[in-house]
């Protein structure tokens, strides 16, 4: 990728292990993410990719291991701390607020930055009104960026799948995150939609300098857009490196094609 300066390590995961009851979802996984890079986590179904993402932003709490974000240790990461620390994410099975309009959904992404108290809001006083307007402007920028102006006022439940995925991304972008976690952003899309989504991810990375961590099980797209790739299989790390290195890794090949080949 040209033009971007890939910086220091900003997110470091050390020896993460996670299990549900007796089932091991992740075993002793370590990897890091550098500033401004696009980092992919790939692996077959059930490899533990989503669990990994859920650990990073505090939805699941791992039994072992630590998360270091910009030099700060997070022993007990939770979703709120993660959001405050500048992590945003999208969801594999789209977790939009389906009773709300596209605009309101994206506005929720500004929540952490809105400070007006409940009384100011109830009386719609100056500060509340100003704040609402100010954040609306920011949200409109994102709406323009993702080209979803025409659906602003529509309840998200009525949108087709591809557009819902885009709104999900818009909501995450509204948080102005430093690190953006994308959970299978291209799952279930047709070729054209995939191309659009790739373009948006690259643009976000390029224009805002946002670090991107993305999960995908479709190897093709990932190899094209990411700087470095981690490969998981059955909850273990089996490869880590540039797309070319990973492609040449015999463990990765056998995980994807079956061991006997």
């Amino acid at each position: 990728m040209s033009g971007r300066n890939i910086g220091e390590v900003i997110l470091d995961l050390n020896n993460i292990s996670l299990s549900f009851g007796g089932v091991k979802a992740l075993t002793d996984i370590s990897f890091n993410v550098r500033e401004h890079e696009i980092r992919a986590i790939i692996g077959p179904n059930g490899a533990g990719k989503s669990s990994m993402l859920n650990v990073i932003n505090g939805v699941y709490r791992p039994q072992h291991g630590e998360i270091i974000l910009r030099g700060e240790h997070f022993a007990n990461m939770n979703s709120y701390k993660a959001a405050k620390a500048g992590l945003a994410r999208t969801f594999q099975n789209i977790a939009l607020f389906k009773g709300m309009s596209v605009l309101d959904n994206i506005m929720t992404g500004r929540n952490l930055k809105m400070k007006a108290n409940i009384l100011q809001q109830a009386f719609w006083l100056g500060p509340a009104q100003r704040e609402e307007l100010e954040h609306r402007l920011k949200v409109e920028e994102i709406i323009d960026f993702l080209e979803i102006q025409h659906i602003r006022k529509i309840p998200v439940g009525r949108l087709p799948y591809g557009l819902q995925k885009r709104v999900d991304l818009a909501r995450a972008l509204a948080m102005e995150p430093q690190i953006l976690l994308l959970d299978e952003p291209m799952a279930g899309m047709n070729v054209e939609e995939k191309q659009d989504m790739c373009r948006f991810i690259l643009d976000v990375n390029d224009q805002f300098g946002t670090t991107v961590v993305l999960i995908e099980h479709d190897m093709g797209v990932v190899m094209d857009i990411s700087d470095r790739v981690v490969v998981l299989d059955y909850g273990k790390k089996i490869g880590d490196g540039t797309p070319d290195e990973v492609r040449a890794n015999p463990d990765v090949i056998s995980a994807y094609l079956g061991a006997s080949h």
Binding site: M100, M107, T108, L112, A116, A122, E131, M175
Partner: peptide
Amino acid sequence: MAKNLVRGSIGRQWMAIRDMDVAATVIGI
């Protein structure tokens, strides 16, 4: 006042919790 609350940020927080609480906590609610 109720109308003002539900169209403002607190109202969006309520609806976000109603519609999808996990996603709501992830965006910092």
